[in-house]
Every structure is written in C-alpha cells, then in structure tokens.
Amino acid sequence: MHDRQNRDRWIRVLALAGLAALALASLAVGAANVSLSDPQAWLFLTVSRIPRTLAAMLAGAALAVAGVVMQQIARNRFVEPSTTGAPESAALGLIAVTLIAPEAPIWVKMLVASVTALMGVTLFLQVIRRLPPKEVFLVPLAGLILAGILGAAVTWIGWETDLLQYLSIWLLTGEFSGVIAGRYELLWIAGIAAVIAWFAADRFSILGLGVESATALGLRPQAVMRLGLVVVAVVTAMVVSSVGMIPFVGLVVPNIVSRMMGDNLRRTLAPTAMGGAMLVLGSDLVGRLVIHPYEIPAGTVLGVVGAALFLILLWRRPRRAR
C-alpha cells in the first residue's frame, strides 16, 4: 500500500512540476520578446501572457475533468464532451441568442449556451441507452453521428444567417491567441464546475460501478447523472464560447490517468485536471513556436497530438486477466 501511495505522490509531484515549467515557458514565449527590465513588460504580462496561460490551463483542466465525468456517466472510456454533440448544441444556443437577442448581456448568452449544451448531452445519453452495452465503440460512434447531425443543422443556420465565421470560432479553432484580460474570465466558471465535480468525486465513482450498485448503496443515480451532465454542459459551453472547442483532451488525459492510477475519482481528479492543463498549455506553446512568429491554434496542434496519443492508447490496451 505504501508503494502505491508513494507512486501516486510521485505522479502528483511530477505533474505539478511539469505544469509549473510549462506555465513559466508560456509566460516567456511569444511573438514579442519581453524582458523584465522593460516597464511595458508587466503590462504585457498581465494583459496578455498571464491571461493566455491561465486560459489554456483552465480550459484544459476543465475539459479533462468533464471528460472523465462523461465517461463515468456513460460507463464508456471512449466518450468526451466533443463526441456527445454538446459543443454543437452550445453553438446552436449561442447562434440563437445572437439572432434573437443580439444585445443580450454576456451572462444570458452563457446561460443559453449551457442549457442547450445540457439538452444536447442529455439527448446523447438517451440515444446510447438504447445501444447494446457490450458494443463499446458504438457509443462514441453514436456520439459522433449525433454531433454531425447537430453540426450540420447549426452550419445550415450559420450559412443562412451569414454567421459562419462565429461558428468556426466556436467549434473549430480552440485558439488562445485572442485571449487578453477581460476575454477569458468565463473559463473560471468552467474551472468552478470542475471543482464541483471534485466535491462529488465519490458519487461519480460509485455511479461508474453501475446503476444497480449505486442504488444499492443508497445513491440516487439519476441525480448524480444530472449533476454530471450539468458539469459537462457548463464546461463545454464556457470553452466553446471563450476559446472554441478543443478536441481530444477529455478523451486522452482521463485514459492515461486511468491506466496509471485507476478510476477512483477522489484520487485521480486532481492529476486528471493537471494533465489536461499540461496538454492544452503544451499544445498552445507548440503552436506558438513551430512557425514563430506566426501561430497555429492549440486546437489544431491537439488534433494531431491528441489523435496520435489516442491511437497509441488504443493499440496498447492493458493486458487483462480475463
């Protein structure tokens, strides 16, 4: 038992050190060279670099947590918010507000986006409930199809109303170059949602044992599911509307953490959040460096890195005793 606790502690320490190193690098790297002797430097840091770094960390951490919560609810390792139709639903909500009440305050837009994302992910859950439980890959497949249908609908509306440009920002980019102070703070709400998930960690773990066991232990499985869906919806809506959807984080990070530490969320949620923060921050850094002084969106980098990681995870499935 002590070996295990030591190992967990090392994983935590290394993750924290890695995250700190990435954060420092993110503060230091960019199109403009900043030197601390420059009086403009602090302004630059506080207005641009620090918000950008925080935004990447918050989005990554929240998406990874939302991913693991979604996996517990669906009892399937291969789902994440972006394979449930939630981002497309959030975009549908955002486009509806933009059309119906363009002057609506930001909180109204966020609320609508969260509610429509919740509707989307609830629809996903209804769809997969009808699938045979043994067919593990049908669930993400059904999610992708649902996302495709919702995406087509929202694209059609965007086309008809000349709002395609907004759509591409919400659903395609996953970009942090536009992040400055005052334009990323919504991601704190995603962060808070992730913290709420941490408080309910045991409930999600028990839900992962199955509805039967959860009921026998006195939980109300439906209530826990609803809480989880709200977390997933809020995180998705905030990420979609502030930096654009980022793929693969919610899929890859929880799977890696599960391989190393298992699925007891009380122990694994913090490392999952750190892993998500590291992955997105690292992708943003790579995007800033490869064609310096120009940039590639973090979402694009993740499309490549995340897909590669996912394939490795699929090929190197752990050996099972049965």
Partner: peptide, 18 residues
Amino acid sequence: GLVSRLRVRELVAFGRWP
C-alpha cells in the same frame, strides 16, 4: 462486468458509503 478500474480495497471501501 465492471468497467471501472478500481483497486480491490477501493471497491470494498465504497461499501461503507451509506
């Protein structure tokens, strides 16, 4: 079939949840 990857002690400990 349990999908969760829990350690045996962790699974048993969930029995104390009530």
